[in-house]
Structure formats: structure tokens, C-alpha cells
Amino acid sequence: MFTAAVFAATLNRHTYQTLLKRPARQTGVFACALCLALIWQIQAGILEHLNIHILGITAATLVMGWRLAALCALLASLLLLYFTDLPVNQLAEFLLFSALIPIYLSYALYLLCYQFLPRHFFVYIFVCAFLCAGFVGAAKILISGGYFYLLGLYDLPTLLDNYMFYSVIIWFPEAMLNGMVITLLITYRPHWVKTFYDQEYLNK
């Protein structure tokens, strides 16, 4: 129920009406969902629930906006549910920690950067995309680890040794992937990136 409520907060009539009228945007949503599904199925884990994988969600949020990024994540999760061994009873948990919470974090960090930092091309790449993505990737592991601890699934030493420790390692590949994707897109297809404004970031 909590996951459904968090996703419902992303719903907006105008956003979806606009999406239905723009076939190119629909293609973008499905392409983004497919890319996320492909990335998410490459994961490692020793114990049940404690899976580690690249999120790619910060780039999706910057490109699609937070509302459509949530839709992309839902579609990607459903693809994983159908084509992989993702259990049905873990779908809500997976969607919440791998997508919805990282989307909210990514967009909140973007808004902070937009408000308080210079609106410059390199600020957008290195802070909004690279650093924020690394932070979100590490935060996902720490937040979900805390959730599993509160549920009593694992004790703290097990989580620290087999899961939370990897937040130190995952931040760089997460940051690198998202940073590279955003750099390529705003260099060759800046009009595809919803949160990138040419007049503000390039006219400096």
C-alpha cells in the first residue's frame, strides 16, 4: 500500500494527457523502461533481498522528469516480473527502493542544484548527473538496508558485511553511468532531456 501511495503521488492528468498526444514521448518512455529493465537484471547478491545493481534512475529522472520516470520504472519492473525470476511478493519492495525513492531523491537534489548552484553546462553534468547519481546509488543501499534491519530480516553485522558495505563501492559506477548518459544526451540530443534548458545552461 505504501508503494502504491508513493507512486500515486507521481500521477498527474496533464502529464499523461500530453504523453498520449505525443507519440515520440511515448517511444521515449518505452525505450527508457526497456533500458532500465536491462540494467536492473544485471545484479549481484549473496543473500535474499540483498541484491546490488546499477540503478540508472538519476539519468532517467533528468531525461523524463520525475513523473514519467516513475512510469518508466513501473514498466521496467513489470518487464522484470514477466521475463525474470523476480518474485511477485517482492515487486512493491523492489519498485520502492530501486525506483521511487531514488527518483524522489534525484529530483530533490536536482532542484537544490538548480536553486543554489550556477546554471552551467558542467555543473549540470558533474553535479546534477554524476555526483547526485552516486549519492542516490549509495543512499538506496543504506535506506533499504535499514528497512531490512527494522523488519528483522537480518541483523546489523550481516547487513554491514554483506550489503551496506557496498554503498562505498557502488557510488562510482553509478555516477559514471549516469554521467556518461547525460553527457551524451545533452551534447547530441539536448531537446530529449526535460530538465536541461539550453538558454540557462549554455548561454554562460
Results as ranks from 00 to 15, higher is better:
1 M>D: 12
6 V>S: 05
8 A>E: 00
9 A>S: 14
9 A>F: 04
10 T>I: 01
10 T>G: 07
12 N>D: 15
13 R>E: 10
14 H>W: 00
14 H>R: 12
15 T>Y: 03
16 Y>K: 09
17 Q>Y: 04
18 T>A: 13
19 L>P: 10
19 L>S: 10
21 K>R: 15
22 R>I: 04
26 Q>L: 14
26 Q>D: 02
28 G>M: 14
29 V>I: 15
29 V>N: 04
30 F>W: 11
33 A>I: 07
34 L>F: 14
35 C>A: 15
38 L>E: 02
38 L>F: 10
38 L>I: 14
40 W>H: 09
41 Q>W: 07
43 Q>I: 01
44 A>F: 15
45 G>Y: 04
46 I>M: 13
47 L>A: 14
47 L>N: 15
49 H>M: 11
49 H>L: 12
50 L>A: 07
51 N>D: 11
51 N>H: 14
53 H>V: 07
54 I>N: 02
54 I>C: 05
58 T>R: 07
60 A>P: 05
60 A>W: 00
62 L>N: 06
65 G>C: 09
66 W>N: 06
68 L>T: 08
80 L>Y: 03
84 T>V: 08
84 T>G: 06
85 D>I: 07
85 D>G: 09
85 D>S: 14
86 L>P: 03
86 L>K: 06
87 P>Y: 07
87 P>G: 09
88 V>I: 12
92 A>C: 10
94 F>G: 06
96 L>W: 03
98 S>A: 12
99 A>M: 02
100 L>D: 00
100 L>M: 11
101 I>F: 07
101 I>W: 01
102 P>S: 11
103 I>F: 01
106 S>N: 07
109 L>P: 00
110 Y>I: 07
111 L>T: 04
112 L>W: 09
113 C>S: 14
118 P>R: 11
118 P>A: 09
122 F>Y: 12
123 V>R: 07
123 V>I: 13
124 Y>T: 06
127 V>S: 06
127 V>G: 05
128 C>P: 01
129 A>T: 07
129 A>V: 09
130 F>L: 08
130 F>I: 02
130 F>Y: 13
130 F>T: 04
132 C>E: 03
132 C>S: 15
132 C>M: 03
134 G>E: 06
134 G>S: 10
135 F>V: 14
136 V>P: 01
137 G>Y: 01
138 A>T: 08
139 A>T: 06
139 A>C: 10
141 I>M: 04
141 I>H: 05
141 I>G: 03
142 L>E: 10
143 I>F: 11
146 G>M: 05
147 Y>I: 06
147 Y>C: 09
151 L>H: 08
152 G>F: 04
154 Y>S: 12
154 Y>F: 15
155 D>H: 13
155 D>A: 11
155 D>M: 04
155 D>F: 05
158 T>M: 13
162 N>E: 01
164 M>L: 12
165 F>N: 11
165 F>V: 13
169 I>G: 06
170 I>E: 05
173 P>R: 10
173 P>A: 08
174 E>F: 02
176 M>F: 15
176 M>I: 11
177 L>R: 02
179 G>L: 00
180 M>E: 03
181 V>N: 02
182 I>G: 05
183 T>F: 13
184 L>G: 11
184 L>T: 11
185 L>H: 03
186 I>L: 08
188 Y>C: 08
189 R>K: 15
192 W>S: 12
192 W>I: 10
195 T>I: 05
196 F>T: 02
197 Y>P: 03
197 Y>H: 13
200 E>D: 13
202 L>M: 13
203 N>C: 06
